[in-house]
Design a protein around this nucleic acid. Structure first.
Lengths: 252, 252
DNA sequence: ATCATAGTCGTCTGCCTGACGATAAACACT
DNA sequence: AGTGTTTATCGTCAGGCAGACGACTATGAT
């Protein structure tokens, strides 16, 4: 068919962010409170419109910086510190997903180490880290038994997809280190896996696995005691990005 | 920030399709020849605009049916035959990817059994199955040493991503059966893996692996000789979608 | 001093995979 | 009919890795 500029309908394109971190042994996501309709007062994922001259990844990185102050870890600079991992997740385009107009949202997944406090344009009450389990408990009750409204739009689906991506991707990649500070111990890394998967892992087998995989961890020489008990060696993430054989997630 | 209808630029949204099949022991993709500028006369991936009232998956299924006549296999109907597998791949939105205007393309990946001949609105010369290796050989030469122009737009990148997705996904899922007819032999399934991965697999170990994984294959009772040699049992795809432990891709 | 807590090193067993021998059942020849 | 070729299928064996778990080490708390 020939090209006809009037043959296509206009869309709004946004990026939405699933920003995950591990806090207090729980997998948490960044949620912002909506200030205007639709879904006014409800929690939602951070996001915004893609600008006219902006790539999708650029837009996601910009929104991430606006919401959290995080800069994106550049894979070409392996030793860079405190950067978040950012990748495209999936695109959501149901015609009715936004009642105002036709919006296609390109969701991105960001993994970050534990951060101080979230900020949303300076208004802290409008952004928070919430356990994903709580955010996905549709119409249920929060930690203090207060009622929790489901996330706005289709953001529960997006969050669920992002969590599932993170859960499966730490199996076969070194992505779990993105949840850790620049230097970390084997125990801290193990607690990341335990929080993301929601399981308990054998500390001895985990230690053997991660220290025995070439390129996964490189010792920095230092030791620390951060959780009580015997001091542990400090490591940083090695150059390897793929884990082969993978870390096995215990069934059930 | 408050909602402002004039605050977002309009985008065109398209779906592009990476349609893969296995023909003559080679992984092939569907390519269509562009009839108008830009990239007139060059090969491209099939695709088109998303309509105003259409979901992204619907648009992809519609384009797939228009180009190939294939219907999409509905996962809720396990015994359905001759349907293609369709899943979202990734979204490409570089501001300069289409010189005409700002276009965001939601690429989809389709896997289909070997089909008769492609049709593109009845004009067969405008659509063909080409080995992916040939389509990705940028500026190189085809099978008959004729020069080959690279794919239009960023379609080489999209195709490359789709092929990589297919290569990795048949490792840990039963997706390779989507390349097979409704009933197939273990040898035919093995040739799918060999074509997609570009390696040779040991027939004995492969047979042990696939027949030993519960729920992967169910025997239909029949036997066939399609490649010469001793007749082989016929199977159809079982209900299992995940392979655990996965099929291991030989290194290098 | 004793206990609790974490980290680290070993051992053992079972499962899975890769390498490969052997047999079975068809077809194409002579 | 016999022989060779091709493909399918079953078995065997050794090595690697993961799960289960014992043992020891090094810190802080009581």
């Amino acid at each position: 068919m020939p090209y006809d500029p009037s043959a296509f309908p206009p869309f709004a394109v946004t990026v939405d962010l699933v920003v995950l971190t591990v806090r207090r042994h729980a997998l948490c996501a960044l949620a912002v409170r909506r200030g205007e309709p639709p879904f006014q007062g409800r929690w939602a994922l951070p996001g915004g419109f893609v600008r006219a001259d902006e790539d999708l990844a650029q837009a996601a990185a910009r929104e991430l910086a606006e919401e959290t102050g995080l800069r994106v870890h550049d894979p070409s600079v392996p030793a860079q510190d405190n950067g978040a991992h950012l990748e495209q997740l999936a695109t959501y385009g149901d015609p009715k997903r936004d009642p105002r107009m036709r919006v296609v949202s390109v969701a991105h997944l960001a993994l970050a180490p534990d951060l101080p406090a979230p900020r949303a344009g300076g208004d802290a009450s409008n952004a928070r880290w919430a356990p994903v389990e709580e955010l996905l408990r549709q119409g249920g009750y929060g930690r203090d038994a207060e009622p929790v409204a489901p996330l706005a739009f289709d953001h529960a689906q997006i969050l669920s997809d992002g969590v599932e991506r993170a859960r499966s991707k730490i199996e076969y990649s070194s992505l779990a280190t993105a949840f850790c500070p620049p230097e970390f111990t084997v125990g801290e890394l193990r607690r990341v896996y335990e929080a993301v998967w929601g399981v308990a892992l054998d500390p001895r087998n985990f230690h053997r696995k991660v220290t025995g995989t070439p390129g996964f961890l490189v010792p920095t020489g230092g030791t620390t005691t951060r959780q009580g008990g015997r001091p542990a060696q400090l490591f940083r993430a090695g150059g390897a990005t793929l884990l082969n054989p993978p870390m096995l997630r215990p069934e059930v």
